[in-house]
């Protein structure tokens, strides 16, 4: 038994306080949404629609953070060859893609009553969609390659390239066409919006951190189980 454990290069992760962190993150999200809905007056032009932005904009920001993490962990994997960095990059990519999809859907729900169309080929929207497709490809690559080391190296390259491509995609689509309203940063908005936006940005950030951690735990536990099963089978057959 102990020899089997020693055969795994890393230990199974412990949840520790992360479960509590998750509960707090969701409680904080509920509180942040309640506060921002309560304190923000309806927009002069948008009416209540601007309340959609309290999820849409934080989701978009945190999507960027997730993709940045993918690039960092992918580079770190290629540098140090620690499988855990690959699993972290994968977890960040999955959560980033989730937030990316959420950003797109919320943008459409906001755009329909505001612009009168579900979709407009503007720079920000289109480059967000392209990023979604790039990271859907990344996740497909991981799903279609079984051998762990190969999967790690290939997806590190693909994740890094995808993240690096973002500014280029954005530039090219912006030259191609532009229609979006000025980017929502707290400075351009009313103080009560700015506060609400910040509150919700941190809420989504905590949720994203929690998701990445849990996804990473699941992936790492699975890898440890595979190592130990292999060790158990090999040890059993050599002894028997």
């Amino acid at each position: 038994m102990t020899s089997a454990v020693a055969n795994s290069p890393f230990e199974a992760p412990k949840s520790g306080r992360w479960l509590l962190f998750g509960w707090l993150a969701f409680a904080y999200l509920i509180a942040a949404q309640a506060i921002s809905i309560a304190i923000s007056p309806p927009d002069r032009d948008m009416g209540d629609l601007q309340k959609i932005l309290y999820i849409h904009v934080p989701a978009a920001w945190n999507m960027g953070i997730c993709y940045f993490l993918v690039a960092i962990y992918s580079m770190r994997y290629l540098w140090k060859r620690d499988e855990r960095d690959d699993l972290k990059a994968a977890a960040a990519a999955e959560v980033g893609t989730l937030l990316n999809g959420l950003t797109l859907v919320l943008g459409m729900i906001w755009g329909r009553p505001t612009w009168g169309v579900w979709w407009a080929w503007d720079a920000r929207l289109t480059s967000t969609l392209v990023m979604f497709l790039i990271f859907a490809g990344y996740l497909a690559l991981r799903a279609f390659v079984d051998e762990p080391e190969r999967r790690a190296q290939w997806s590190a390259a693909a994740g890094l390239f995808g993240a690096i491509n973002y500014p280029i995609v954005y530039m090219s689509v912006r030259w191609w066409r532009t229609l979006h309203q000025v980017q929502s940063t707290p400075d351009t908005l009313d103080p009560s919006y700015a506060l609400s936006l910040r509150l919700n940005a941190f809420a989504i950030l905590f949720i994203a951190i929690f998701f990445i951690r849990r996804r990473y735990e699941a992936a790492l536990t699975e890898r440890v189980a595979e190592h130990e099963l292999q060790a158990a089978v090999l040890g059993g057959s050599s002894r028997g």
Binding site: V130, I134, G137, F161, G162, V169, M171
Partner: peptide
Amino acid sequence: PLLLFPMLVP
């Protein structure tokens, strides 16, 4: 194509 086409958008 799934990996390549979105990367080739620019």
